[in-house]
Computed example of a mutant assay.
Amino acid sequence: MNIPPIIQIGDILISSDIITEKFCCDYETCKGICCVEGDAGAPVTIDEVMEIENSTDVVWDDLSASAQSVIDQQGVAYTDQEGDLVTSIVGGKDCVFTCYDGDNCLCALEKAYRKGLTGYCKPISCALYPIREKVFSDGTVALNYHRWNICECGRKKGKALDLPVYQFLKEPLVRRFGEEWYQELCDVAEMLLSSDNQKE
């Protein structure tokens, strides 16, 4: 493809594979394994930590005893080895807000939100995945498409549905950057893909 590797929408830098790659979470296959894999929690902002703290009482009974103990000892978030603020984890991997429905991993925060019990859904870093956001020291924001081996089923499903990453993530992208920005992203994506197809 002749689409440039980096695209700028407003003041946000975007990796072009967010437009060109296909993705759709296949929860029936993966069982929500992203909540319990990895060596750190989900990146969060200070504002999100406050939102999570306000929601903790609502979801408390859905959390494991181990998760409750971790929260009691260090709170809902901590600073990891890279200096990033992330959600607390259990046993070096499980997010403290993981709860279970049989073999399926669920986010207790999102579960409560979907039931209308809280106004906060989940960290935007979780909602945006497989897009990862990077904020540079000058304030520039960059969005990159992250490939994790546990999400292979999501890539296969996305290809089967012919669903680009940015379309799959419409809701969290609008939540993070606004409706106007997202529409501009769609317009640019359509223009670039159309131009590229004509060249082929």
Rank of each mutant, 00 (worst) to 15 (best):
M1S: 14
N2H: 11
P4C: 02
P4H: 09
Q8H: 12
I9H: 02
S15W: 15
I18V: 14
E21A: 12
E21L: 02
C24Y: 02
C25Y: 05
D26Y: 01
Y27Q: 08
E28Y: 13
T29S: 15
I33S: 14
E37W: 08
E37Q: 10
G41Y: 05
A42W: 11
V44R: 00
I46V: 13
M50Q: 10
E53S: 04
E53F: 01
D57V: 05
W60T: 10
W60Q: 03
D62M: 06
L63H: 10
A65C: 03
S69D: 13
S69A: 08
V76M: 02
Y78R: 03
Y78N: 04
Y78A: 03
Y78L: 06
G83N: 12
V86I: 04
I89C: 01
K93N: 14
T98Q: 07
C105S: 11
C105M: 06
A112C: 01
K115D: 15
L117K: 09
C126V: 05
L128N: 08
Y129W: 10
S137G: 14
Y145V: 06
H146N: 12
N149L: 11
N149E: 15
I150T: 13
E152F: 08
C153L: 10
K157M: 05
K159D: 15
K159G: 12
D162F: 01
L163W: 01
F168N: 11
F168G: 02
K170A: 15
L173K: 13
L173P: 13
V174G: 03
R176L: 09
G178A: 05
E179H: 14
C186W: 12
V188S: 11
A189Q: 04
S194M: 04
Q198G: 05
Q198H: 11
Q198L: 10
Q198V: 15
E200N: 15
